[in-house]
């Protein structure tokens, strides 16, 4: 299953994008209660949203973004049915991407 849930809604020429990503967002400063070892840092570093090949949002994140991060923003120039692509890369090199249509 994709780690990304994204919705984009057009209203009066402005597209509102809302996205949820499931990710632990570990800071690397927390100890595992059972093993007494630090949970290694594991957080998303960059989220990119593109619309028709143009980047509308690049988010650079540190470990201080909450677990299962939420992101919302608005942009102009979208129309209904356009495809939006969201992709993320984390500090362990993992990544995922997902596409959705503007409604």
């Amino acid at each position: 299953m994709s780690s990304i849930k994204m919705r984009a809604k057009l209203d009066g020429g402005v597209t509102t994008v809302k996205a949820l990503i499931s990710h632990p967002m570990d800071t690397g400063l927390v100890k595992d209660k059972k093993t007494d070892k630090l949970i290694p840092a594991h957080f998303i570093q960059e989220v990119t949203v593109t619309h028709k090949g143009t980047t509308v949002m690049t988010a650079e994140w540190g470990g201080a973004v909450s677990k299962n991060p939420y992101l919302s923003f608005r942009f102009k120039g979208g129309s209904a049915g356009d495809t939006l692509k969201l992709s993320w890369v984390d500090n362990q090199g993992k990544s995922d991407s997902s596409e959705g249509q503007i409604k």
Partner: peptide, 12 residues
């Protein structure tokens, strides 16, 4: 620093 959002041209 928690996050930095770079906005595209049409982004509000």
């Amino acid at each position: 620093l928690t996050s930095n959002f770079k906005l595209g041209k049409g982004t509000e």
